[in-house]
Design a protein around this nucleic acid. Structure first.
Lengths: 236, 236
DNA sequence: AAGATCAAAATGGTATACCAAAAAGCGATG
DNA sequence: CATCGCTTTTTGGTATACCATTTTGATCTT
């Protein structure tokens, strides 16, 4: 119970919302009501409301009240921390290869140019890990954006950031030999871009799949030879 | 300026963080400092801190202080509400077809049985919209779970719930003729299951793709004939 | 001089009081 | 009877005051 109290209150409110069958758009009880209901001050309820507002669950209107924006999903917001790097990579492989295939059919000349620029940057900054990694991210993001579909771009970005935030990954990442990063991965990216240029959906799918297959392999060899910390963590 | 003030303060704080070169892990100025700096009460700063905490930018420790968790990026937390139903369906089509192909190679007998049960249920409850819809959701979720990859299942579920929470969809959904729902979609589901049984990746991909293509078509005809509210909202 | 102990200061946590905008009630007026 | 406009009430917005925990550091002990 040493947790931040407003979160607790927020969860309680979510439950109350689920119990009382409110529909989207309905006005929910006022801050004061919840305050008395839970026996806490209005300040806390207010903080909880801010949390719900940021989660886009409710909308608060000054002088009027707070309104339900969408029903809380039972599925709690992504327990994303404890998935292994390989499960993550598999997900990326499945999704990004499909995304690449889709992008091949919708990509614009401007998008192609941006991709080329990013690859040039990646090549120029091969020895600067930070910048190379940033260019890597940019490449994958641009491919996703080439689908012209916000949600697909969102999902790809989401998976990437999940990788960056994963402590396990960071540990692995620091050990990736520069040679793999540059030599193989850059070539992979170039192959993907080539298929996109040809607007060959199957080719793009294959190229992206192979790229992530290579990443998986690099990581596997790494974790195999250098560190036994990842047992039971490696596969789906 | 009729906006919620805490958000404004939050953005100001982000800027201050960027100006003062703080590193990850460093201790931030206290709430009181920011309060005086901006000439507002600590309450507001506190609310802003809560916002930053939810965005996983900082970490607050009772009695000690607040600490920088990661540098403020562009990091847009997905304005997911205002995507049209068709953009959503396209995303599902791309992702779920790939997921189905993956599932075909990893699915277990138990998963196949669950899928069969769900389809039986769907058939039995054809005239109960609520239950049929629930069975529909269950089917797509089970396919995703058959990949044995939590993240893929998560993403599929996420997209589905996005659909359910979309007011535009709810409006459309209420108008879907029972015939389409049952006649076509159930058959689609059966085709997908058949391909999964054969463990035919390409077949499963095709079947799932076609299914969502059919859903798109149904929705398109619906929005075309009955309501002009969706102009400019239809495509990616 | 090194360590332990305890007091005081710093800092986030919570509650209360008052302010301002919006909505609701209500009466005068056409 | 409808409607305009004022007053009252409701409701979120902001500020202040006080509490609990953690940190800090000074003093005492060995």
């Amino acid at each position: 119970m040493a947790e931040r109290l407003y979160k607790e209150i927020g969860e309680k409110i979510k439950l109350e919302i689920l119990k009382s069958d409110l529909s989207v758009g309905d006005k929910l009880p006022t801050e004061r009501v919840y305050a008395e209901l839970f026996g806490v001050s209005r300040t806390l309820v207010r903080e909880a409301f801010i949390m719900l507002e940021i989660e886009e669950l409710i909308e608060v209107k000054k002088g009027s009240g707070s309104y339900l924006k969408c029903r809380p999903m039972e599925r709690a917001a992504a327990p994303i921390s404890d998935v292994g790097p390989f499960e993550l990579l598999q997900a990326r492989q499945v999704i990004e290869s499909a995304v690449a295939a889709c992008a091949a059919q919708t990509i614009t000349k401007a998008d192609l140019q941006k991709l080329q620029d990013t690859l040039d940057l990646e090549e120029a900054e091969l020895h600067n890990v930070e910048k190379a990694n940033a260019a890597d991210r940019e490449f994958h993001l641009l491919v996703a954006q080439a689908t012209q579909n916000t949600l697909l771009a969102d999902n790809v970005l989401r998976l990437w950031d999940m990788r960056d935030n994963n402590p396990m990954w960071q540990q692995l990442h620091s050990r990736i030999p520069e040679s793999s990063y540059s030599g193989q991965w850059l070539k992979d990216h170039e192959k993907v871009l080539m298929q996109l240029r040809k607007r060959d959906a199957e080719g793009a799918r294959e190229a992206m799949w192979q790229h992530l297959e290579n990443v998986k392999r690099t990581l596997f060899e790494l974790s195999d030879t250098e560190s036994p910390d990842f047992d039971g963590y490696l596969f789906s």
